[in-house]
């Protein structure tokens, strides 16, 4: 089986498309009203859930408002309206255990059916100048423990990301794929310089073309993702700028190729440029973004896309997606190379 890796890439991508798009998100909280509260009072909070099954839970729904792991209050009463709506009553203690006029409390809901869902910084609590003597509650009255765990196969719910978290299987593998494919292109350029075999030049050119396509796809998928999460298709993020610059390098490579008539000279000079340009590409994609603030995860003080975001269920799709897209790219590159080779044999033109 010479073509096993092509079959493998198709199988993996089918798996990525079906599992990556069909598996649900874990239950989450999309909105909470009101978003402000005062100390020493009772509030009733309307919660809208996402993918949640509040009516199917066997009356074990618990909710906490917490400032940090040591300071939490339990709900007084929970009223289930339907599967995605809850009405929760909280008593806010008289005191804030932090400095400053306000603190943001996180809302945590745990049910036996859905497991834990969290809305970070859900309610902003401000200090009330008057103490309410009827309130007996305090911040350490209720600890968060005995949580039910959701055993379903699903992807984490993140408030800004929502369903777009699935784009991780398409956007990030494009860049991984681009790097691997362009690396192959550079290796064939070096091979050409070592031994002037025109086949190596056609391979270098084909892989550079596919790498360019992957780069464009990476920009487009990233732009669509940014439209939904950062608010606009283009926001002059440093990674957007450097990736456009890296695409310019490879566009210049094709302009350079088209400016030669002698095929041997074309192959040699463009191989030299390909190697030199790759040396500019590496700092552009891996060093420069680290020097600047960026909206991307893992840059400019933002947490990396790891830990809770890239959890184990996502890894089961993400790593295969990287392998699948890379193999598909090599397959496309090979088709382009074979077409180029046929042209070379028929017309001596490539």
């Amino acid at each position: 089986m010479k073509h096993w890796w092509k079959i493998l890439s198709v199988m993996i991508l089918l798996y990525v498309m079906t599992i990556g798009l069909m598996a649900p998100l874990s239950p989450g909280i999309t909105s909470v009203t009101p978003i402000t509260a005062k100390t020493g009072g009772q509030i009733s909070v309307d919660v809208t859930g996402y993918n949640s099954n509040y009516t199917k839970s066997k009356e074990i729904i618990r909710a906490w408002l917490y400032l940090d792991t040591l300071h939490a209050v339990c709900s007084d009463a929970i009223k289930v309206i339907d599967d995605t709506h809850l009405e929760i009553a909280f008593t806010i203690p008289n005191d804030l255990p932090v400095k400053g006029e306000r603190a943001s409390a996180n809302l945590l809901i745990n049910t036996d059916k859905d497991g834990t869902s969290l809305n970070p910084a859900a309610i902003s609590i401000s200090r009330n100048s008057v103490n309410n003597s009827e309130i007996k509650a305090d911040w350490i009255s209720c600890s968060i423990d005995n949580l039910f765990v959701n055993e379903q196969y699903d992807y984490p719910f993140r408030n800004i990301l929502g369903e777009t978290i699935r784009n991780l299987y398409f956007h990030v593998p494009m860049w991984f794929g681009m790097i691997f494919i362009l690396l192959a292109s550079v290796i064939y350029s070096v091979k050409y310089l070592a031994k002037s075999n025109p086949i190596n030049d056609i391979k270098a050119q084909s892989y550079a073309a596919i790498g360019l396509i992957y780069g464009v796809m990476g920009l487009v998928t990233g732009g669509i993702w940014a439209e939904y999460t950062w608010g606009s298709f283009w926001s002059n993020d440093v990674k957007q700028l450097t990736s456009v610059a890296s695409l310019l390098i490879y566009l210049a490579y094709f302009v350079l190729r088209s400016s030669f008539e002698d095929t041997d000279k074309k192959a040699r000079i463009s191989a030299v440029y390909n190697v030199f340009a790759f040396a500019a590409l590496v700092p552009l994609l891996f060093v420069i973004p680290r020097l600047f603030a960026s909206l991307h995860p893992g840059n400019g003080g933002n947490p990396g896309f790891g830990g809770e975001d890239l959890d184990n269920t996502m890894r089961t799709v993400f790593y295969p997606a990287v392998i699948g897209w890379t193999l598909l790219g090599f397959w496309m590159g090979q088709l382009l190379y074979r077409y180029g080779n046929i042209r070379r044999k028929m017309y001596d033109d490539f």
């Binding site: 700028l241 450097t242 610059a245 390098i249 210049a252 350079l256 500019a280 420069i288």
Partner: peptide, 14 residues
């Protein structure tokens, strides 16, 4: 100019 600009960009940004 076409070949030079993209290669210079990493230096220029810094």
């Amino acid at each position: 100019a076409i070949l030079g600009f993209p290669v210079i960009i990493p230096i220029l940004i810094t």
